[in-house]
Amino acid sequence: MQLMHQFLLKQVAISDEDWLLFSSRFEQKIYPAKTFYLKAGETENYLTFVDQGLLRFYIEDKEGNDTTIGFSFEGWFMTVFSSFYTRKPSLYYGETLAETTLWRIHYDDLQEMYSRLKIVERIGRLATEQLLLLKSERELSFLLKSAEERYLDLFHKAPHLLQQVPQKYLASYIGITPQALSRIRKRIS
């Protein structure tokens, strides 16, 4: 949990006492590679910190084709917010791409921590704001940028993904085919 503690200290001034209480509500969960963290139709019950590993989130159409919506990697909080906060079944799948170690807190425990610790409420607000900004930025990139520009943005913001994530998932994430991504990579190299 040291990585999560360091991450939070960069965001907020959490006291040792508050950290001990908050962190006591987390449980560790380890998933092998290529394992579902969450399936469409299941309700997201956890706010999770990725201690080690990598996950991909995607949706599947009626024909079984999937579109990558996002990635979660080491040193970040994650949840399927639309399911977590509404308590309704998820439309997303979450799958590990590598062996993944998570620290997770159940929805009910988080709600209790929100009411007991003001700093946890602040952590939740900051996490939600960061996610909203990422989602807004991604939405604008689809409206205003070319596929090549979206790839270059990904290259500059998350270069580790380019080494860890299969090309077909990266292509899906930026809204193009793997063949088009291959052409872009050749053109800019």
Results as ranks from 00 to 15, higher is better:
M1D: 01
L3S: 11
L3G: 03
F7N: 12
Q11F: 00
A13M: 04
I14Y: 00
W19P: 04
S23M: 01
S24C: 06
S24A: 11
S24P: 05
R25H: 13
E27G: 01
A33V: 00
T35L: 08
Y37A: 04
Y37E: 02
L38G: 01
K39Y: 08
T43V: 13
E44A: 06
Y46P: 05
Y46A: 08
G53W: 03
Y58L: 09
I59M: 06
I59E: 02
K62H: 06
I69Q: 10
I69Y: 11
S72I: 07
F73M: 11
F77W: 04
F81N: 08
S83E: 03
S83H: 07
F84E: 02
Y85W: 13
R87L: 06
S90M: 06
L91Q: 15
E99T: 15
L102W: 02
H106D: 10
D109S: 12
L110I: 08
M113P: 01
Y114K: 07
G124C: 09
R125H: 13
L126G: 05
E129Y: 12
Q130Y: 14
L131H: 14
R138L: 09
E139S: 14
L140F: 11
F142K: 15
E149N: 09
K157W: 09
P159V: 09
L161P: 11
Q163S: 10
V165F: 07
Y169F: 15
G175H: 04
S182Q: 09
